[in-house]
Design a protein around this nucleic acid. Structure first.
Length: 760
DNA sequence: GCGAGTTATGTTTTT
DNA sequence: CATAACTCGC
């Protein structure tokens, strides 16, 4: 029964694959784990395997490949076809796959297939209501924190009912109540959040053997890329999908696991061999991407992670390019320096599409953007979801969501008075009360408006006009026919267009009119909606059977990198997380400072610092030829100009400290493989020169150089509170707290880190 | 009911 | 600093 690709194909592939890659690609039967470093061709192995499977006679229909982003799925699809594989294999992300499964087996899963998918801001509204419904205060139970806790539970497949029985302490019991209520709200609104997609799909597969058998029969070969970043729910889904045949192939690199904070469980990859007996493990250790200098730096960095199996990166590329570390005064100078570097590269003949800048947090893109605009360097910020988060876009989409899923109260509340049509808070409250009393949905309540006595005739008329308008739009939407082909063919005579419906909504709802009346800002908004409509038109064109539900569910799962236009000759700006899976000839990594990378929210725990190190490792290993790492002496954070401390990671790369300029690097320095051995000793001397053998060099630098000290009785000026007298000073280095009695009469304890206090 | 203006607040990474 | 959540006057 072992399928085998034709000799012709084996030969063709063999010339393009290394020995270990061949071993992985042609081991078509039974579990396979590919553990491989960056740039070793993990994704390539999966793509080739798809082609090999199809060539060996497996129908494409029986193949299911899971990628980390939709973008990666698209690329894999194209590359497989380029290798001669016919289309038809299912390639998607876990989330997209789950949506398909939940829709197809909606009856088993107990969901209405027209469900809305709720993102953070929708979730926030629901959790706030859940907290309020339970009689708790959002001050004691921060909505975001609660959502986070619930998300963690869902990723572990602990549903609200299960959690109720294991909650034993006060916090858990409170959380349990909120969790139960939150799930009830989502259910009432026929909505699923991102984590529900995975959890519900996992339970569906585990509880219904017929579904499992059906899907096991459908997907006879399961391939999963980036396995190190799967969470427990995804693991259980994979387990269920492969249970019938054990034809599972996973590829991953524990050193590139960067989503632990989101529930990714590194044990999934570490325990793979235990989970699937008789696994063939293939290690790909050669790196075909980066030059030796880059790999040496990467290797040196990742070696500082203790909880890791040692793994070498074997160099195959010739020595070329450079690794530079540059220090700047502040983020503006840093951005300017990068712009100059880019101009130099361009002068050498490099095209902009081969350059990328990575940063830890999205806010860092601003400084770069400003300079790039001034320097006239074309760039693209890789932030796909941002577009769909714009107010006007969300407004149009909310209309569409209501057509498909009238129970979606979040969407309905958004549009009921957008644009303003005289339906205010009081009316909405009355409507909600009525709906709650009758135990019906809000949309249902609109239909019984005449029964709400407290609502005046004129207001009722407005509500009726709104309802009539929505009902009119809904007539344009064909009934959702799901996946059943027999009914499908009967209704097929008319091709539905999302774009024309969106256009109709825009012009007829009054949105266009109200935006047009707004002037310049409205103009931008109109332009955005127009590009939404053209994107929808593209969807109509590319999709065989465009449907509104499918469209809405699809854009809900849109990720940042999905918007990345690889063909554009523009510098790509993105977060280190988004950079995963990509590669560029020239890479800049900015803001490598303590508190930013590693991020301040992660420095308290060693395992989190290790994840930050992996994140930096991922960034470094994206570079093929040139790598430039930058940091600044001062950085504006949340409006405050702060003196920064170079990241500990810089020393781990082997940076030296210049005593004469008291800076970490004179102006810039180059690291290369030949410099190797000296770094450790130089780091030691740097630390001891700063603090004479103490361990915590971070705060010492600040104390030494810039943290002013205050004494009782000092007169100080504060930006906001004015003049005052120092009452107390708690010297804690960068965390020092000053207590000041201001002349306004108030006494304040201020963190030196944040407050700008000047001694006079 | 509505919008302008003010004040509090919270700050990572994302499918 | 940037945004969400308020207040207030029309």
């Amino acid at each position: 029964m072992t399928p085998l690709p034709s000799n012709k194909l084996q030969e063709a592939f063999s010339s393009r694959l290394t020995g270990s890659q061949q071993k992985a690609v042609f081991h078509l039967d039974g579990p396979l784990l590919v553990i491989a470093g960056p740039g070793s061709g993990k994704t390539r192995v999966i793509t080739f395997r798809i082609a090999a499977l199809i060539d060996s006679g497996v129908p494409p229909y029986n193949i299911c490949a899971i990628t980390f982003t939709n973008k990666a799925a698209d690329e894999m699809r194209q590359r497989a076809v380029a290798l001669g594989a016919s289309g038809g294999a299912h390639i998607s992300t876990f989330h997209s796959l789950c949506v398909r499964i939940l829709r197809r087996y909606a009856a088993f899963a107990g969901v209405n297939p027209n469900f809305s998918i709720y993102d953070d801001s929708d979730q926030l509204k629901c959790i706030k209501q859940a907290i309020a419904d339970c009689g708790f205060d959002t001050a004691n139970f921060p909505p975001a924190r609660m959502l986070d806790a619930i998300s963690t539970l869902k990723n572990k497949l602990i549903d609200d009912d299960t959690f109720k029985h294991q909650a034993d302490d006060f916090f858990s019991k409170t959380l349990s109540k909120i969790y139960l209520r939150y799930q009830q709200i989502l259910k009432d609104l026929n909505a699923l959040d991102f984590d529900d997609l995975l959890m519900d799909a996992a339970f569906l597969l585990e509880k219904h053997s017929e579904v499992r058998a059906d899907l096991g029969n459908r997907f006879k070969f399961l391939l999963i890329d980036e396995y190190q970043d799967t969470n427990h729910a995804q693991y259980r889904i994979a387990k269920a999908l492969a249970s019938a045949h054990n034809n599972i192939c996973a590829t991953g690199d524990p050193d590139q696991s960067i989503y632990r904070w989101r529930g990714a469980d590194i044990r999934n990859i570490l325990d793979f061999e235990r989970d699937w007996p008789n696994t063939l493990v293939v290690r790909l250790e050669e790196n075909f991407r980066s030059t030796p200098g880059i790999l040496e730096v990467a290797d040196r960095l990742i070696a500082h992670n203790h909880s890791r199996k040692e793994k070498r990166l074997i160099v195959t590329m010739p020595s070329a390019g450079r690794v530079a570390i540059e220090q700047y005064e502040d983020e503006a100078a840093e951005a300017l320096g990068i712009a100059e570097n880019i101009e130099k590269l361009v002068a050498e003949g490099v095209t902009l599409g081969k350059i990328a800048v990575f940063y830890r947090v999205n806010a860092q893109s601003r400084a770069l953007e400003e300079v790039f605009i001034r320097s006239k360097i074309p760039y693209q910020i890789v932030r796909g979801v941002e577009f769909y988060n714009r107010k006007e876009i969300r407004d149009v989409l909310a209309y569409l969501k209501v057509f498909v899923n009238p129970a979606d109260r979040v969407a309905l509340l958004r549009i009921i008075n957008t644009p303003a049509r005289g339906i205010g808070k009081t009316t909405i409250d009355k409507l909600q009360n009525f709906a709650a009393r009758r135990n019906i949905g809000l949309y249902e309540a609109l239909k019984h408006i005449s029964n709400i006595l407290s609502i005046s005739k004129t207001t009722a008329a407005k509500l009726i006009a709104f309802l009539t308008m929505i009902e009119g739009f809904k007539k344009q939407v064909p009934l959702d026919i799901g996946d059943s082909p027999d009914i499908k063919s009967k209704i097929e005579n008319r091709k539905f267009s999302v774009a024309s419906l969106a256009e109709l909504v825009f012009s007829e709802s009054g949105l266009e009119q109200s935006l047009a009346a707004e002037g310049a800002e409205g103009k931008d908004a109109i332009a955005n909606i127009e590009s939404l409509i053209s994107a929808a038109a593209r969807y109509d064109q590319e999709t065989e059977n465009p449907s509104l539900v499918d469209y809405l569910q699809r854009i809900s799962l849109f990720s940042d990198v999905d918007a990345y236009d690889t063909s554009a000759e523009r510098v790509a700006l993105m977060t280190l997380h988004s950079a995963k899976g990509l590669e560029f000839d020239n890479v800049f990594i900015v803001g490598v400072e303590d508190g930013l990378l590693p991020h301040e929210r992660s420095v308290d725990f060693d395992d989190e610092t290790e994840e930050e190190r992996r994140l930096f490792f991922v960034g470094i290993t994206r570079a093929k030829t040139n790598l430039c790492i930058t940091f600044a002496k001062y950085r504006q954070i949340r409006g405050q100009l702060l003196r920064t401390v170079p990241s500990q990671f810089l020393f781990e790369l082997g940076l030296s400290f210049s005593e004469s300029t008291r800076s970490v690097v004179p102006e810039s320095c180059f690291l290369g493989p030949e410099q190797g051995t000296h770094f450790q000793s130089e780091k030691e001397s740097f630390v001891s020169s700063c603090l004479g053998g103490e361990k915590n060099y971070k705060s010492s630098i600040i104390n030494h150089k810039l943290s002013p000290r205050f004494h009782r009785g000092d007169i100080v000026v504060h930006k906001k509170f004015g003049i005052g007298t120092v009452k107390d000073f708690a010297d804690m280095g960068e965390n020092s707290v000053v207590t000041v009695a201001f002349n306004t009469g108030q006494t304040k304890s201020l963190h030196l880190k944040f407050a700008k206090l000047v001694k006079i």
